[in-house]
Design a protein around this nucleic acid. Structure first.
Lengths: 136, 136
DNA sequence: GTACATTTGTGCGTATGTATG
DNA sequence: TCATACATACGCACAAATGTA
């Protein structure tokens, strides 16, 4: 609503901020559709590249999911299963490569957890489905 | 490797694969600049939109960093400091919000680790600087 | 300071392909 | 079949940021 083309902040970032706020406030509920590219272009008086850039940014943040030929949707919050980090183990988080995203069928904006156990084994887990724990 | 416009794989994905390989092999070293959009456009005989799409993809993977008016650069590999996951603690990984990215000065494509200790405290750590461990 | 070249950001027009309803 | 909507991709142009002379 308050997009200023003369701002130093890129237009697509401003629109992403706006949409992110609407998602966070629940105005755009999980599972609901974002306005179409054409609507966002018209209503905010901005270009298609800006709209696509904003949605692309939200995808990279894992907030929305775009279905080709259908629209972009607010991602449902997935239930995380608990996985124990074994003694002597360690874990790093990073973004998956394109091949990993394909083979693990991950949406954009979903990090992976790279878990190492002391024996040297490595497991790569989708970060949106897993909560790592260390029992008390 | 040459780019085939008639392939089923989108041109921008093909270019991203190419650049990712050059980054992985060290041909494009950490800190070094990617060829400019104009160069990539000319040398591969493709449109600027495809070039920008490829770079955007690499940004979302945390492989490169773009500075307006300057260029895109291969991200330096940061040394990960080890942080112990306390007994009774847990951790999830996710992408940061725009505000978090700004306040924590994170580049695009860098996840965060949300660490909970049993007392209920929550710490948000940049995933590219941290390796969580559980001592044996 | 000014001026300039380089580079990315934005906007727009056009076109084709693909998926959904 | 047809309309709608997104994905990809080309072209062009200008604005804004950066660095350098």
């Amino acid at each position: 609503m308050t997009i200023d083309p003369r701002s130093h902040t890129p237009v697509y970032v401003q629109l992403a901020d706006l949409l992110r706020e609407q998602i966070g406030s629940g105005e755009l509920a999980p599972g609901s559709a974002l306005p179409s590219e054409a609507r966002l272009t018209q209503e905010h008086g901005i270009g298609r590249e800006a709209v696509r850039g904003a949605i692309s940014l939200l995808r990279s943040e894992g907030l929305v999911n775009t279905v080709r030929g259908h629209g972009s949707y607010v991602r449902e919050v997935t239930e995380r299963r608990q996985v124990e980090l074994m003694p002597g183990g360690s874990v790093v988080a990073r973004m998956p490569s394109g091949k990993e995203r394909q083979s693990m069928q991950l949406d954009e904006g979903v990090p992976v957890l790279e878990v190492r156990d002391p024996a040297g084994g490595v497991k790569v887990l989708p970060a949106d489905e897993v909560e790592l724990t260390r029992p008390a």
